[in-house]
Structures are given as C-alpha cells and as structure tokens.
Design a protein around this nucleic acid. Sequence first.
DNA 1: GCAACGAGTCGCTAT
DNA 2: ATAGCGATTCGTTGC
Lengths: 237, 237
Amino acid sequence: MRIIVGRASARYTGRISAELTLGDVVILIRDPALGGDGSLLLFDRAKGIPPRNWMPAGSEITEADGVIVAEHPGRGERLEIYLESVESDFSAPAQLQTTLAKLDTEEAFSDLLASNLEMVDEGIELVGREYRTAVGPVDIMAREAEGGRPVVVEVKRRRSSISDAYQLRRYLNCVAESGEFGRREPRGILVAPHLARGAKEFLDGQKDLTFVRLDFEQVLETEQAKHKQAKRRKRSR
Amino acid sequence: MRIIVGRASARYTGRISAELTLGDVVILIRDPALGGDGSLLLFDRAKGIPPRNWMPAGSEITEADGVIVAEHPGRGERLEIYLESVESDFSAPAQLQTTLAKLDTEEAFSDLLASNLEMVDEGIELVGREYRTAVGPVDIMAREAEGGRPVVVEVKRRRSSISDAYQLRRYLNCVAESGEFGRREPRGILVAPHLARGAKEFLDGQKDLTFVRLDFEQVLETEQAKHKQAKRRKRSR
DNA sequence: GCAACGAGTCGCTAT
DNA sequence: ATAGCGATTCGTTGC
C-alpha cells in the first residue's frame, strides 16, 4: 500500500459525476505489486468515516506530473486526483491480512431468539430460520403449538422503522398467499429493542401484526440464567 | 491527522463486539490538536473500502506501550489497537477542508423528471416535490390533468427492488387513507432504469401500481433536445 | 432530539 | 450473473 499525505483536488466520473475541491487529504493506494487489490481511497484529513472519493478493487492506477488517475474499464469509472503538494509519500507491502470476527450481529440475535422463542411469544415453536419466501428470507418462521397457525418473526437488533414494519407486512402477505401452511391465516411479530413512531402507528392499524420489545442483552441474560438453573438442578441431583 | 503504518490487532466493544486478528494495517487518527474531529479509522492494507475498525468523531484517543485506546464515553464505545510493529508514524495538520459536489444524484434525477413529467405519464401535472406524508416524503406528487386523480411517483436512479415497490405501496396507502385529495383513489408509478424480478411480480399483482422504465441519461437527452428545439424556433422567428 | 431516506453505499449469502 | 439484506452502516434533511 502506498500512502500519500498532501493537498489535492479530485474529479470522479462513473456511477455519478463528482468534484472534490482542493483540501488536505490522505490517499491510500492498494497497488497489486505491494499485495493490494487495486482499490484506492481518498480521505479528508479533518473528518468523515466514508472516503470522500474512492475506486473499487481492480482499478488501474497510474501517475504522471502530480496527477493520479485510477480507472476501472469494466465498470466505466474514472478518478483523477490533482496533487498540489505532497507532505509524505510512503509505501509498505501488505503481507499478513486481518480477519474480523463479529459477535453481536443480528444473525446472532436471531439465533438466540430462535432457541428462546418463549420470550417472543408463549406457545409458539420453531419451523425454520432464514425461511425462504418469494419476497425474501423470513428471519424466524414459527407456528402456534396449538392449532398450528403460522407465525412470521422479523428480528431487528436496533431500532425498528416503518420500512421494517412493511418488510414484515410483505413476508406475511407472501406466506398467506403461498398457502404452504394450509388455509390458516398467519400472523407476524416484529422483535426489536425499540419501535419508531411511524412503525408503531402502522402496526397498531394491522390486527395481524404485533411488536415485542427485546434487546440482545436481555435475551442473553435470560439464556444464561436458564443455563445456571440447569446446572444447579444437575448439581442437586 | 496522524498516520500509522504497521502490524496490529484490535478489539472493539460498543454497538457490537468485534475482534480483528493480527495483520498489516494503516491507522488514521484525526487528533483534534491537528484539526481533526476525533475520529479514527483502521484499514487492512490489502483490501476493503469500509474500514475494518473505526471510532466516531468525538472519541478520546490515548496511547501507551504500543496500545492505542479510543473511547467514546457518550456512546459507550471503545476500540483497543495492539501495535506489534510500526513501519511509519507521520503527523500532518488538517488545515484546508475539501468540499464534495455531486452531479447525477437521485435528487437531480427527480428534479429532471418533475420538469419532464410527460415522460413518466401523459396527462399528469405536478403537485409537489418531496411531498410530506405520515410515512415519509413522496418524491413527486402529481395528479391527472383531467379528473384530478392523485398520482404518487417514486423515483429510483438505480435498479428498483422489492422494497422500493413496497415503499411506493406504503405511500399510496397513506395518501389514500389521509383523504387529502378527496375521495379519488390514487395510483402509483415507480420510475427506474430497471426493475428486479420480485418487484415486477409484486407490481403485476397490484392494479393501482405501474412501472415506467427511465434512466437519467435518457431524460437528460430528451430535455436537451427540447431546449435545442426551443432555440431553433426562436432563431427562425 | 427523532425519523426517514439515499448512498458512486459495501459486502455477504443464496438462487 | 441477479436478488435481497444487514451494517458498529454514514450523512443529510425535515420536523
């Protein structure tokens, strides 16, 4: 990777057109010769999490007379960087790659809920996870233990918005129309730590949709308490 | 901004928990003393557009014994970076900030369509842009010139997916229920350069929703042709 | 502050 | 390849 610290402006054309005014920036160039993937990132030195400009992996990057040109022929993208001054220009190979492990993702929350379904609703049992429908995968497909009424559960790890509520509406419509659970009318449950106002209003007007407030830690603690109890019982035998 | 090139591992806790294994990285620290906003970015030197780990603006960043700790008390986030080796450590102030101007965004596409509504549908006229409803802003609110039937137009600059189709469904439901256009039943138009399969299936089953295929360039060319024609007419007068 | 939305979103998974 | 979706999404706009 080559790291250029300097003052520059830039121009991008491709998916949109964009122009970056002159400013203090840092440029990261992932030269394949140094173990990189051919991507390029340009950051404002003052602020911003996403790059101000960038080019995807596989770009061809050349430099001449203080102008860096990155081009991706296949995608029809091009970024031109005009260097006004350079304070530092350093290169180092990329040899050892990192791996990122994430622990409390939505998938983990969904897993946890699937094995603690009684926290979502009494008397429902698991049918499947990431249950495929024509309009997308249902997080948790369940059914009422008595009667077998299908229950669609949509899980959000964070605040749930109106679009999430409509996502559930969509899955429910699909399950109802598909008829794969017989003629029993399904119902839906949205599980999240918080519900946005608009989402609440919508759910209130839908008699087959309900909201259950749960967050990751809450379910985790209950799960752990369950295990402790099981251990205690085991010991006392 | 301070730029550290080296080999490191990291651990993040806050919104989730995450662990980054040892690898070749570059770390960007936006020290407020150097004009930065207190954010921190960590990249794999080999690949990835988004950072592997990061901390938001306003973080307090300290270093001791090759361990960088960034903490954001208000958000309850913490990132620890364990430096194994450092190849370069360079600092430079952020004095001049960049500004990014974007030209062909969805907003621009929507603007263009609003002044070329006949390309969307014959015989409809503009009521409002970013028209506010209880469930979100409608891109273009229009009405049939004859009869005044309300027409909700949702614009996508890129491929339109099932969730976009449901977004339109949502706006239409809201407009219908609000009754602010009288008792005339509204209809909806999704405008995009391409429609995903699932979205097409859904729209086909909704008799009050239709799809119009249009892309930015197409509308732009028509607009420009229109202007040329107007000029020619002017000249011949 | 909340809420909704677009993004040059990116990156992942499954069909 | 397409499709759908989560993300430590981010950043903006409007109320």
